[in-house]
Nucleic acid binder design. Structure first.
Lengths: 249, 249
DNA sequence: TTAAAATGTGCAAAAAACTGCAAGTGTAGT
DNA sequence: ACTACACTTGCAGTTTTTTGCACATTTTAA
């Protein structure tokens, strides 16, 4: 087998599987691993692949999969935010949790929107406060370091004083049997209070968290009025939830 | 599984769930926890994640969002912050306003300090929440767009429930006849409540604001226990205030 | 305070990589 | 045909990387 032929094969395999082991190539092509190593080195020098100890990775792994992974999921959250924004009408009272998805929601709010936003998340509040026409109400209490949220009985009591039109929660895990679940007891208490005090509960999550489970249940599926992901509403992954009575957006 | 592949997976999981346990990773990837620990260490060294006992956290939350250089008279405010920090002892309850000077104070707090900080300023709260040993209590109410502070009767009532050891206020104007003055009615109400509810009131300001006047009086000079500027305590500009009974630092 | 879990460190085995070298191959010019 | 030469390939010895294990230490939780 010719050198160029061999390298073309390697490149093909790498791009196909996103990775390749040097030992596998040795067996497949039946050449010494020295030859394979030299091929990988040349391809890496040309920038066609990324050579690592034990084999090689596709370029898309770093440049198209890893770094943009953050951007990619960022894009997903923007899609989710757009859908969520469409639910908010002038004059509404909206209570929200925290997290990056909610921050995206805050950034996506149209400037002409007149509404009142209630939250205990410092990051979310900062975003809301930048908007010109939105009333912002901060829920105060002891601030949780992990979640950058005010959490405690005092805050929960304050939340219960409101009756909001919408409750937006970025969620960490949801599955058919256990509903929405999370891993922070105090945050869960706050989320429950938010759900109880609003007419409609909307859960926001990227699809990767669908069908995952965390130790503490926030609420059952019945309590979720609407589920928003970056996927289209008729996506098969969401079908079971639609069947269980959750509206999908 | 290749090392880079593994680390990419870890990074993905961390960014997805905002946290990950080392033991879980061991099971998922099926390698020894030594390997996982080394991976976490490397990722943490690169700054991709934050390594903690038992696993790792996403660093996306903890990145600072204020550029220090953008703050006016940044160096002077750091000097002020250093002086102010020297007043805080372990176990104290400290109530603070907002503004860039207070943010500098927050950044200058020593990591080993154990104290409780109370504030209604979103920016200040964000800074306090980054510190490991500080209890943070958020005062909630309607958020003022201009000052990024929670302000209103509810918040004032909450402030009055505390008796703090120290009250730090960044001030906009101070002069001999009118004492401390400001230009935002709601903010002034909150500042008054903070002064009333603490044993000692400390005013922080850069020297440019000394001998200036704003429309609304916050408090008289008598109510100010301590005045901190970037100038040395015996500077002639401050002499009249010392004569009037204000301690200078 | 005590027990369990997690961490750091040193070490050793296995895998992989690097280096130099020699044998094989193909090409071009004489 | 034959030689010179560049190029490729495989081999052996050494070095580096990776990984798991044992043990002492630290941290956490009850």
């Amino acid at each position: 087998m010719l050198k160029q032929e061999r390298q073309a094969y390697i490149l093909h395999q790498v791009n196909l599987h996103n990775k390749i082991l040097a030992v596998d190539l040795c067996q497949h092509i039946n050449v010494s691993n020295d030859t394979i190593r030299r091929d990988l080195q040349e391809l890496a020098d040309k920038g066609s692949i990324i050579k690592v100890h034990g084999g090689a990775l596709s370029n898309s792994f770093h440049k198209g999969n890893l770094l943009p992974e953050a951007i990619y999921s960022h894009a997903k959250k923007q899609i989710i935010a757009q859908k969520a924004v469409s639910l908010i009408k002038d004059g509404m009272f909206v209570i929200t949790g925290g997290g990056t998805t909610i921050s995206e929601l805050a950034k996506a709010l149209p400037v002409e929107l007149n509404a009142t936003f209630i939250s205990g998340s410092l990051t979310a509040l900062m975003e809301y406060a930048k908007h010109p026409n939105i009333e912002v109400i901060s829920i105060g209490d002891k601030v949780s370091k992990a979640s950058k949220m005010s959490i405690g009985p005092d805050g929960i009591m304050k939340v219960r004083q409101f009756t909001s039109d919408l409750c937006f929660l970025g969620i960490n895990a949801i599955d058919l049997h256990n509903g929405v679940s999370d891993n922070d007891w105090d945050v869960v208490q706050m989320k429950r209070a938010m759900i109880d005090s609003s007419k409609m509960t909307v859960c926001l999550t990227i699809s990767e968290k669908i069908n995952s489970l965390q130790p503490i249940q926030v609420c059952s599926l019945k309590a979720v009025d609407l589920l928003i992901t970056e996927l289209p509403a008729d996506h098969p992954l969401l079908k079971p939830y639609a069947d269980a009575g959750v509206r999908i957006l």
